Amino acid sequence: MDTNPIYTDALPYIDVTRPYFALRNLSPLPPSSSGFPAVTGTFIPILGSVAAAYSNPVKAKHYYLALDASVEFVYFSTCQELRADARITFARWEKHRVGCEIEMFTPKNRFAGKMKVSYAVVTEKKLISITKVIDPKRVFGTAWQPGEPSPYMNPIMLRMVKTCSPELVTAIISLHDRRSMAGHFSPIAAAPIAILSSNGIVLCRQLLGADEGKQWLDRRTRVKCQRLAIVGEILEVRARKLSGGDFSHRVEFWDEEGTMMGIIDYLFVEIDVEKEKPRL
């Protein structure tokens, strides 16, 4: 990992590893207008956690759990890696809350989009106390091994996919393999709902369909998370079309007790793969 030495100070205070944590070219930026330190690096969502850890006045390990987030792309790049700048926009350390704004750029420095995230800041003891344990034998997290599929890049296997109507598709996700949570938390095999987003996109695209040579991409996303997904759970995923508003589709995650765990809203746009331009 290529990082600026002064920023390695923040890395011991977050507890995530590859494949989720795969930052490169990490270096400082001038402080934001709010006065908090800022960071830049090759983009992956955890950059916000690094900025938060670097800004946290308590230099101890914390977990930054995204409660809600929004992201909007103004340009779709064919490049798989984006440079990003992360700045803390607010911090209420005494209330265990911190907010971050991340701006994304192509390798040629073209502005690609912006992400805003609000985190809950918890200690390891608090993380374990608020996390529901399904299988005590699988409580601890596991390390990801090079060459294994990344659970953050590839959908976990969907089962029992059912098209209920032209507006609704449902499926089941079984989280019985600790490796489906690899790279996130070491004391417990759990992860935020957002890492399951690729599964929801698969279902949404089943509703959308596509003409030959065309592709649907998510231009705008909003995530709201009620709790973590835990190894051992069986979740129901529901993807539905929305009518009107700022988003076109909603994905809901439900646990076996019938409680909603989180939602992800999307605005999909159809692009011409050859021209690589959104059709708005």
Rank of each mutant, 00 (worst) to 15 (best):
D211C: 04
P192F: 01
D218A: 12
A194M: 11
R138H: 07
G209Y: 12
T163Y: 01
V161K: 06
S197R: 01
I172V: 11
G147I: 04
V161H: 01
K137Q: 04
C225R: 15
R138Y: 11
C164E: 10
I193D: 09
E148P: 01
P136E: 10
G209C: 09
S197G: 06
T142R: 07
A189R: 10
A191V: 13
Q215Y: 12
G200V: 03
C204L: 15
L203M: 03
D218L: 02
K162P: 00
G147H: 02
S174L: 09
R222C: 08
C164G: 00
L217D: 05
G147V: 01
E212Q: 10
V139A: 04
T142M: 07
R219N: 05
I134V: 14
G141E: 01
L208M: 15
L168G: 01
T221E: 13
V133S: 09
R222A: 11
P149V: 04
A190N: 07
V133G: 09
H184K: 02
I230H: 08
A190Y: 09
L158T: 08
R138Q: 15
Q206E: 02
Q226H: 15
N154K: 13
M181Y: 13
D135S: 06
Y152E: 03
S165P: 07
L196P: 13
I188S: 14
P155K: 07
L203H: 00
Q145F: 06
V139M: 07
A190W: 04
I193C: 15
A189Y: 15
R205Q: 14
A210Y: 07
M153G: 02
C164P: 00
Q215I: 05
Q206S: 00
W216C: 01
V202M: 15
M157D: 07
L217P: 05
Q215L: 15
L158E: 08
A182V: 02
S165R: 00
L207I: 03
M157F: 04
T142A: 06
S197C: 02
I172F: 05
A143D: 15
I130T: 15
K224Y: 07
M157C: 07
P187N: 09
E167A: 08
A194E: 14
Q145E: 12
G183Q: 14
Q145N: 00
T163G: 03
G213T: 15
I201S: 03
K132A: 05
K214D: 05
M157E: 06
V133N: 06
R179F: 05
D218Q: 00
E167L: 12
N154A: 04
P151Q: 08
K224Q: 06
K137R: 11
R219P: 01
M181V: 08
T131Y: 04
A190R: 00
S186V: 14
I188E: 14
Q206C: 00
I201V: 15
W216Y: 11
I234V: 06
I134D: 01
D135V: 03
L208S: 11
L228G: 14
M157H: 03
D177Y: 02
